[in-house]
Design a protein around this nucleic acid. Structure first.
Length: 605
DNA sequence: CCCTTTAAGCTTTTT
DNA sequence: GCTTAAAGGG
């Protein structure tokens, strides 16, 4: 055990004073941390502090809540690197939705019957169940916006205050179906959990006792409903909350983020504020540009930028082209030039405001001629994080390389999940499973050598799925209860993997390519949040793609802030007045070009 | 059925 | 603000 006063950041990390204060703060705290400030590292070190000094003694735990699955996984991984092995299980890192759903699944008998869903309830991601419930009540919804508006109304107020149509719809979705199966959206699950906790103070009490410390990541994006949930759990308690975020990167208001989460939290939880100033990611020129953009966002339009003398070699450019052909050619040539200077394909990223596919169509031909691959990263990211994809790909990896211990461990975990709990203690059975799986993987590797058509690969996939059992897979991953959804996923994976196999002629390489090797990602700025690249291209900084400036200039500026702050070294924007037959302008967003000019660090070409 | 008019969608996560 | 899809009229 380490004494509080003697604690030092682990693994040789050096922090600014604000970070040390935030780590050692034993009250509710709000940490404002800009891009590249090391938010994840800060939380990991705080976990180390709490666990090694025994401020959070077992069996007490730290609850870390994120929005995205990969953020939750990243934090858990970072923490396991920073805390002693026997203590890493004291951190429970989950997404908001997963946290809520787990509570509902564990305690749903604590709900009054009127509000209790069936035990085989389906998560209604597509809002089809909701649409059905409305039409059962003679209300017909056709537009997506209408559906999500109705969903928002359903969860707006506490359930015991509900009357009229919203009450009827809830009841239909919970009990009114002919199949007796409930349909619930994630927002509805959160609302149900709030009711559950109000009815069961003992559950709230056990949450408070178990999770003495709570971390909230990307706090600027917390929704109103999520705020209500954790308020109910932790407001005016002995628990300590650390909320981390950055107001300048608030780009999710349009999707329901709390309008003023920082201020509300500070007031309601008497949170102490800490600020991290150092940006460890970006070159000084990028930082200067971010600073001027931030001043503009704060309404500070005064002051001409002074180009401070630095030895920075970063390249910041705003480029203008007469046509999209010349724009594409220049991007390709710039990338090739960087590569000759020693940069790798992995160093680049192409960002767009929206519709990546449109831009990919424009860029693809010339890029391919130069032997550079680009692709819509969103599609692959979504595909690759599916459990069934991980299962198939790891099986292939383990079959291709019997010494790949990481793949083998992942497979054993899957086998463990699929085996029923009785056989868990049955060593003989476990041993058999290992031997059988090794035999099966051997078959797969033989089968792979004779694949000459895409159908052959699909056969291999079927063999893999049959080995684990489709029913088994679907029983353990409830998102796959919709069979056609799984089938489409498997088909998509098969198509993509075969595409890369034809390209590389090698299965191991094909899997690496599928995961993104040797390929420049094209994605929306929203998707890029939390990522970083050496060189970032922002294609199409024009009125047409940044149309939202007219309706919400603050959030649009925050979006540009996110785009620029992804870059570690170089940031290049491109503009062309002629894109896909349309005239593009830069009048509406002329402020941004003004900011570039005043920053004194951006070259205009 | 075709043409015109109207209005949504664009940027997203989650088992 | 531009594209696409639904709705309405003849």
């Amino acid at each position: 055990m380490v004494q509080k006063d003697e604690w030092q950041p682990t693994d040789g990390f050096v922090f600014e004073q604000g970070a040390i204060d935030a780590i050692k703060d034993m009250s509710n705290s709000l940490v404002k941390a800009g891009p590249g400030a090391g938010k994840t590292e800060l939380l990991a070190q705080k976990a180390n502090y709490l666990l090694t000094t025994n401020l959070c003694p077992a069996p007490q735990k730290i609850l870390a809540i994120s929005f995205k699955k990969d953020a939750a996984v990243n934090l858990a991984e970072r923490v396991s690197k920073r805390v002693p092995e026997n203590k890493s299980s004291q951190l429970y890192s989950v997404t908001f939705d997963s946290f809520a759903k787990n509570l509902l699944d564990r305690f749903f008998y604590g709900l009054p019957e009127e509000w209790r869903p069936s035990d085989d309830y389906e998560v209604d991601v597509s809002l089809n169940g909701l649409t059905q419930a409305f039409s059962d009540n003679d209300l017909y919804l056709s537009y997506k916006s209408e559906k999500s508006k109705k969903e928002a109304q359903l969860v707006e107020s506490p359930l015991n205050e509900l009357t009229g149509i919203n009450f009827e719809i809830w009841q239909t979705m919970l009990h009114g179906n002919h199949t007796k199966k409930s349909y619930l959206t994630f927002k509805m699950i959160t609302r149900l959990v709030i009711l559950l906790l109000e009815y069961n103070p003992d559950v709230v009490e056990s949450i408070r006792k178990t999770y003495k410390f709570v971390f909230l990541d990307e706090f600027q994006d917390t929704t109103v409903l999520q705020y209500e949930l954790f308020s109910l759990c932790f407001k005016e308690t002995e628990n300590f909350i650390t909320a981390v975020g950055d107001d300048r990167q608030k780009i999710m208001s349009w999707a329901g983020a709390h309008p003023n989460a920082f201020l509300t939290f500070r007031n309601e939880f008497q949170a102490k504020e800490h600020t991290l100033y150092i940006n460890r990611r970006s070159d000084v020129k990028i930082q200067k540009l971010l600073q001027v953009l931030n001043e503009y966002a704060q309404g500070d339009l005064l002051g001409e930028g002074v180009m401070t003398e630095t030895d920075s070699e970063s390249i910041l450019q705003a480029k203008f082209f007469p046509s999209e052909q010349e724009e594409t050619r220049d991007i390709v040539e710039t990338i090739q030039k960087f590569r000759r200077e020693g940069k790798n394909i992995e160093d680049f990223c192409i960002l767009v405001k929206q519709h990546p596919d449109v831009y990919i169509k424009q860029l693809e031909v010339l890029f391919n001629q130069e032997g550079i691959s680009i692709r819509n990263e969103a599609y692959f990211q979504d595909l690759l994080k599916e459990n069934i994809m991980i299962l198939i790909l790891t099986s292939l990896k383990a079959a291709l390389d019997t010494s790949d211990s990481e793949a083998w461990i992942t497979l054993l975990n899957f086998l463990h999940v699929f085996s029923d709990s009785k056989s868990y203690f049955d060593l003989k059975k476990e041993e058999d499973a290992v031997i059988n799986t090794k035999k099966f993987l051997n078959q797969i590797s033989i089968k792979l050598t004779s694949v000459t058509r895409i159908d052959d690969l699909f056969d291999v996939f079927q063999t893999i799925i049959n080995y684990y059992g489709m029913d088994n897979i679907r029983a353990h991953f409830i998102q796959y209860s919709n069979l056609s959804y799984v089938e489409k996923l498997v088909q998509d994976l098969c198509d993509s993997l075969y595409f890369y196999y034809e390209k590389t002629g090698n299965w191991v390489e094909a899997i690496l390519y599928l995961k993104g090797k040797n390929c420049i990602p094209v994605m929306t700025i929203h998707k890029s949040k939390g990522l970083e690249f050496d060189t970032v291209f922002l294609v199409g900084l024009d009125d047409q793609s940044f149309w939202s400036f007219k309706y919400n200039s603050e959030e649009t500026t925050a979006t540009l802030f996110v785009a620029i702050s992804r870059a570690k070294k170089n940031f290049i924007t491109t503009f062309t007045c002629d894109r896909l037959g349309n005239t593009c302008e830069r009048k509406l967003i002329s402020d941004y070009y003004d900011v570039f000019r005043r920053s004194g660090v951006v070259e205009f070409l």
